[in-house]
Amino acid sequence: MFVIIVCMAIVVFMPMFAKIPLAVMMQREGKFDNRYPRQQQNRLEGLGARAKAAHDNCFEAICMFAPTVLLVLAMDSHTVYTVQLCIAFVLLRFVYLLCYWCDWHFARSAVWVLAVATLIAHYVLLLK
Rank of each mutant, 00 (worst) to 15 (best):
M26R: 11
A9G: 11
V111M: 10
A117C: 11
V90A: 12
Q41T: 12
S109Y: 03
C7K: 09
A115I: 00
A117H: 02
Q41G: 09
A117V: 09
A23H: 06
E60A: 13
I87L: 09
L73D: 02
V83W: 02
R38M: 06
I5D: 00
G48S: 13
E29F: 00
R28Q: 15
V12H: 00
I87W: 02
P15Y: 02
L22W: 05
R28P: 10
H122P: 06
V11T: 11
L97H: 05
S77K: 07
Q84W: 03
F32P: 00
L22S: 04
D103E: 13
V111H: 02
I10N: 02
P21Y: 01
H78E: 06
P21W: 08
V90P: 07
A117D: 08
V24I: 13
T68L: 11
P15Q: 10
R108V: 01
C7E: 06
H105Q: 15
R108T: 01
V6R: 07
V11G: 04
M75V: 06
A121C: 07
R28D: 12
W104I: 06
P15K: 07
I87P: 02
M8G: 05
V80R: 05
A115Q: 01
A66C: 04
R50K: 12
A115L: 03
K31N: 03
N42D: 07
A110N: 10
